[in-house]
Design a binder for these strands. Structure first.
Length: 651
RNA sequence: GCCGGUUUAGCUCAGUCCGGUAGAGCAGCUGAUUUGUAAUCAGAAGGUCGGGGGUUCGAAUCCCUCAACCGGCACCA
């Protein structure tokens, strides 16, 4: 006998091997009918599986969102695979996991799927759901399963079978005549699937087992929810996300463009460059405040240095090579556009003998880097071939790592807060199997990073073995306004490069030592971070970052001279202001500048000219406010003050 | 880099299946209008149909090829 405890606290005894379906039936017929699965001690199980241990049992219904969504998405993956094989019997099935808001399933088929195929598959899936085919499961032994898939000619399933660990049961399951290998759990019958709350979204190629050396399969993605309304809400959310796409906003707000002659490189326009400069100026002030010294190093550097640093061997394929066609040169110099700044920073460090008294030495650079990214990787500002990092390298002793890490955490959290990101996640990656440096130094560095985060009071996740070969690292992921995560900040200890490039200092003992180098960035790349900012704010940047802060618009042409005067006064106060004296109605101007995300419109008509006032309208707010010219300049100047300067002025 | 899709006026898109000398809206330009907080009216103009090659009497349309972009996959020091 086993004893099962229910969510209401009651418990009952059942013979060992009783299924959750039988338990449900023993409680109420309606429960048995509407149940979708069960949870035994928090483990999600199938209603049809025999239960052999006592524990806490909950019968899951459609209202239990987490198990319901998992089952719906999971079973829809199978239903889709069945639909595809019923439509095209020669298609081979592979694997189809639940993911994000739905699932995908990879198929091996010579012909790619078309949008029309997706519609046909959806229709077939609805037929299968309408058939209310019961789900049946069996545990098979490995040999039988192998024989089955050999006979069926399903090579991918055979490979999956071989990857199932020896101690795990091989589960087969059916709905209708269609069979698949799957660990489960599953719904009772296909009729429990919501026929109107799923949608096949797109087709894409995907490598078998995620391995670029294996065949490319055809992947079909779907999304699914419990109800039609939830699906609709999801599709609406996607539309909203598309509206804040930085590539679209970049065009609409005239921030930047990219073109065929320079793929992956940004042509910044005046508006976009205004944001960039504001952000750079802000970061420069922060760095100065935290004791960094700014430097600037060359972009074109002889391959010799990259050979010494080790980058040539590892990343040469991804570097832009620069040669000069010198007539008669015996040996051509091969240069590379720098893909990163660290080797150059070590060169700066290496100039002049360093003492332990010089440490920690924090060298910062807004370093312009180029990497030849694979063509398919490029994506607007998010992934580019030419970018600028808010890069810095801290040369220090092992004992200084923790304090440097603590100071960095403080700086990073402050920057993220100022830029509108209140929360971020930290990931600590520790020593990998292949690494440089003694265990003693890894112990010390890992403890220093963990200690600094602990003392600062931040939670973090450890990724064992995920560190770089040269040292442990912290990665910082921020969350944007619509819940997406972006890895931006990084803090990496490096026990390799300083010795490789001959960095040294004289210690208090008079002997020569090798410093530790800390690579760190907060924004990552300016290009990408601006993309994130634009999407986070949907183009409506806070006033201090807004590219066009104020438009002064005339209502009648008699006000033109005064409009120019107001504009000039605002510009004198350091505000990015523009005059709009075009021969258009004020409605037209308000609409156009509102769509252009200008935060403040100052309308000026005869009344304002006479009274020397302006009528101020805020973006997305109805109505306007009349203010005296002096008053509005002072008020907007205050509002345009970057958060760091505001904070220091307040002290 | 791989799979699929896309590329037509500054922008958004129709025309491509079934080859017959390129079309709309908005923007821009010109003129009228002097306007009070999200599109005033009228007129004229604007395109080597992504590049190159081929088939054809004739190609935006069919074929080949290159490129860029979009969605994924792989990659991301």
């Amino acid at each position: 006998m086993i004893s099962l405890t229910f969510p209401d606290g009651a418990s009952r005894d059942y013979p060992s091997g009783t299924t959750a379906a039988e338990v449900a039936a023993s409680i109420a017929p309606s429960l048995a009918k509407n149940a979708i699965s069960a949870s035994l001690d928090g483990r999600h199980i199938d209603l049809a599986w025999p239960i052999e241990t006592s524990g806490a049992l909950a019968i899951n219904m459609l209202k239990d969102a987490a198990p319901a969504l998992e089952l719906i998405r999971h079973d829809l993956a199978h239903v889709m695979a069945r639909a595809v094989q019923e439509l095209w019997p020669d298609v081979k099935v592979t694997i189809g996991p639940v993911r994000d808001y739905g699932w995908f399933y990879d198929f091996d088929r010579a012909e790619p799927f078309t949008p029309d195929d997706l519609a046909a598959i959806e229709a077939k899936m609805r037929q299968i759901i309408a058939a209310r085919d019961p789900v049946r499961t069996e545990v098979w032994d490995r040999a039988r399963a192998r024989a089955h898939y050999e006979a069926a000619g399903e090579p991918f399933k055979l490979e999956l079978l071989d990857r199932i660990p020896g101690d795990e049961p091989i589960r087969m399951y059916w709905h209708g005549d269609w069979q698949d290998l799957c660990r489960g759990p599953h719904l009772q019958h296909t009729g429990q699937l919501p026929a109107d709350a799923f949608k096949l979204t797109h087709v894409a190629g995907a490598y078998w087992l995620g391995d670029a050396s294996r065949p490319m399969l055809q992947r079909i993605y779907g999304v699914a929810f419990r109800t039609k309304d939830e699906l609709k809400a999801h599709l609406t959310m996607l539309e909203e996300a598309a509206k804040r796409d930085h590539r679209k906003l970049g065009r609409e707000m005239e921030l930047f463009h990219m073109q065929e002659e320079a793929p992956g490189m940004v042509f910044w326009h005046p508006n976009g460059w205004a944001i960039y400069r504001e952000l750079e100026a802000y970061m420069r002030r922060r760095q100065i405040a935290y004791g960094y010294k700014e430097i600037k190093t060359p972009q074109v550097v002889d391959r010799m240095l990259w050979e010494r640093s080790g980058h040539w061997e590892a990343y040469r394929e991804n570097m832009f090579i620069v040669e000069v066609d010198e007539e008669g040169a015996k040996e051509k110099r091969i240069n590379a556009l720098k893909p990163m700044n660290c080797p150059c920073h070590v060169q700066v460090y290496n100039h002049g003998l360093k003492s332990y008294r010089d440490l920690p030495l924090r060298l910062a650079e807004f370093g312009s880097c180029h990497r030849y990214e694979p063509s398919g990787a490029m994506h607007g500002l998010m992934r580019v071939r030419g970018f600028v990092q808010d890069d810095a390298h801290i040369f220090c002793t092992e004992d200084q790592i923790e304090a440097e890490c603590a100071a960095f955490l403080e700086m990073l959290s402050g920057v993220y807060r100022d830029l509108g990101f209140e929360t971020f996640d930290i990931k600590l990656s520790t020593r990998p199997d292949v690494r440089v440096g003694s265990d003693a130094i890894w112990d010390k560095a890992e403890a220093a990073l963990a200690g600094a985060i602990d003392k600062a009071g931040y939670p973090y996740e450890v990724n064992p073995g995920d560190g770089a070969f040269y040292g442990p690292k912290l990665d910082f992921k921020l969350t944007d306004a619509i819940g997406r995560e972006w890895q931006c900040g990084t803090f990496q200890a490096d026990f390799n490069l300083p010795s490789r490039l001959g960095a040294e200092y004289i210690g208090p003992d008079g002997a020569t030592h090798t410093p530790v180098m800390l690579h760190r960035a907060i924004l990552g790349s300016f290009e990408r971070f601006l993309g994130i900012l634009i999407e986070n704010y949907a183009g409506k940047l806070p006033f201090w970052l807004a590219p066009r802060q104020v438009v002064v618009a005339s209502i009648v042409s008699d006000a033109d001279a005064y409009v120019e005067e107001v504009t000039a006064a605002l510009r004198l106060a350091g505000i990015r202001a523009e005059a709009d004296t075009r021969n258009e109605k004020i409605n037209y101007k308000v609409r156009e500048h509102s769509l252009g995300k200008v935060p403040v419109i100052l309308a000026v008509g005869q009344r304002e000219v006479a009274e020397r006032t302006v009528s101020m309208r805020r973006l997305d707010q109805q109505g306007s406010r009349s203010l005296a010219l002096d008053e509005v300049v002072a008020c907007l100047r205050d509002e345009a003050t970057p958060p760091d300067l505001r904070a220091s002025a307040a002290k």
